[in-house]
Amino acid sequence: MALKERDEFSGQMTTGHEWNGIKELNTPVPRLLWAFLATLSLFAIGWTVLMPSWPGVNDYFRGLLGADQHQAVRQSLAEADVAKASWSERLATEDFATLAGDDAIMTVVRQTGPALFGDNCAGCHGYDAGGNPGYPNIAEAPMMWGGDVETVAETIRVGINSNHPETRYGQMLAFGRDQMLASAEISALADYLVSLQGQKSLSAEETESAKTLFADNCAGCHGEDGTGMVETGAPNLTDAFWTYGADRSTIRHSIYDGRQGTMPSWEGRLSSTQIRLLALYVMDLRGATP
């Protein structure tokens, strides 16, 4: 092993090794790099002392700052509740007529409603509440279970054919599949319902026999005149709004195979204040004052 010596050209010390006359410089690590490493190490030690870090046998070290994500989010939720208190308490307790007549409340409803409706209701009913095939238009069509604001709020709370114990329950029977009506009778009824919309004209005789069929099979739920009944949740069959479609083949399919749409219950997922806000928002969309 050769002796360490100073390299004449660079002025640095060599490592002392020599291979066939070639020597290696022993350039020191730059001081800036040492400083950087030292600072980072100190920061890391400080951080593990301040923040939750080391696992223990039964617990973990919680840090001197006591940072806790669960606590932080609860605090920010509580702060949000305080910020909302000016209107949320009124929404939760006052009756709908007072609320709907209050401009300050309705401004909040119109500002908060779209986000709440978009996150929860729009998937089925559409962002404009205009409905989708299988999901009714709730912006314009008559509400099947009743169109006053208390009833709408109750429908949101318990749902329709949902798993809530107090759910609204409605079912359109499968008249064809369960062999309650013959194929020709179903066709006659479908023709009759299409004719009510003015898309088809039937002879007086055909109309009479279809009316008899309707009275015997459909009137119990849809009403004598077919305008629907809120007690059974059966829709009005004489207007322009059709949940599943207004064409003859869809109507025929509904009579043959039955229908049983589901609206989930929102109790538990939404607070009662949110449900009341949504009911007011939907009524406001409908342009109705309760």
Binding site: Y135, G261, T262, R269
Partner: peptide, 11 residues
Amino acid sequence: NKYSDAWHTAH
């Protein structure tokens, strides 16, 4: 349970 089974199937 946020949406119905029919909704998920159609969606």
